[in-house]
């Protein structure tokens, strides 16, 4: 199996990614936290948590700045402009809960509906959003495409080629602060959270060290995607 290659995808676009192979499939981890599958022209993002501030306030918490849905969709829309994908796949927890999906404010809801209508769109259901939403596209629990299986939460017994989200992994090098990170080994890839208001779980957390093989990589997001041995 091949984990990595040399060329940085997207250099010509002014944004650098990290190319690797999972279950015989060439993929690119982008510095923005999205995954690009060039052969399928498929762009995958995880854990958008749209409507997070609305949900917190609804449940009696404080009123966070209500700009995260706009900001998250803005960054997604920039990626769509750059890659012109045929398919967008959202790996679950796209909405902070189903009520938040329904309450999405108007300009954002309209933008999202247009984005979904313009291409194939797959919603994987997550623990935060277990059900269909009214934004179009196809909703499912998990989906197999080629040699890969996309689901929200990684399974301990998964066959090679699993792509998931859920954990919001992050990692840090000796300098700089912790950054959201992809985690990659020969079996699986875990995506970082793409949503603006999302925190992270350190790669050294037992939940992640238990899932990932000893030789796993962490690919830090940022101006360039930075692969390094996964900090344990």
């Amino acid at each position: 199996m091949r984990l990595a290659g040399g060329r940085k995808y997207g250099d010509h676009l002014g944004m650098s990614g990290y190319d690797f192979t999972l279950a015989g499939t060439r993929l690119t981890a982008l510095g923005s936290g999205a995954l690009w599958w060039a052969a399928q022209r498929l762009l995958c993002v995880s854990d958008l948590h749209l409507g997070k501030s609305e949900r917190q306030l609804r449940r009696g918490g404080s009123a966070l700045p209500p700009y995260e849905t706009h900001d998250t969709l803005q960054r997604l829309s920039t990626l769509i402009d750059q890659f012109a994908p045929d398919t967008i796949l959202c790996l679950g927890d796209s909405f902070d809960d189903l009520a938040a999906a329904e309450a999405l404010p108007d300009p954002e809801a309209k933008d999202l509906r247009q984005m979904v209508a313009a291409r194939d769109w797959i919603w994987i259901e997550g623990n935060h959003d277990p059900g269909a939403t009214g934004f179009g596209g196809q909703a499912c629990d998990e989906i197999a495409i080629g040699a890969l299986t996309f689901r929200h939460i990684a399974r301990g017994d998964a066959a090679p080629g699993e792509v998931s989200g859920h954990y919001h992994p992050k990692a840090r090098l000796s300098r700089g602060s912790a950054r959201p990170a992809f985690l990659l080994d020969q079996t699986r890839l875990i995506l970082p959270a793409f949503g603006t208001y999302t925190g992270g779980l350190r790669s050294s957390d037992p939940a992640l060290t238990g899932l990932m093989a000893p030789q796993a990589l962490a690919i830090l997001t940022g101006p360039t995607a930075l692969p390094c041995p996964m900090p344990r």
């Binding site: 501030s53 609305e54 306030l57 404080s62 009123a63 966070l64 700045p65 209500p66 700009y67 404010p105």
Partner: peptide, 8 residues
């Protein structure tokens, strides 16, 4: 929350 965008 006192935001310029009256969302809440």
């Amino acid at each position: 929350g006192g935001y310029a965008l009256r969302a809440y």
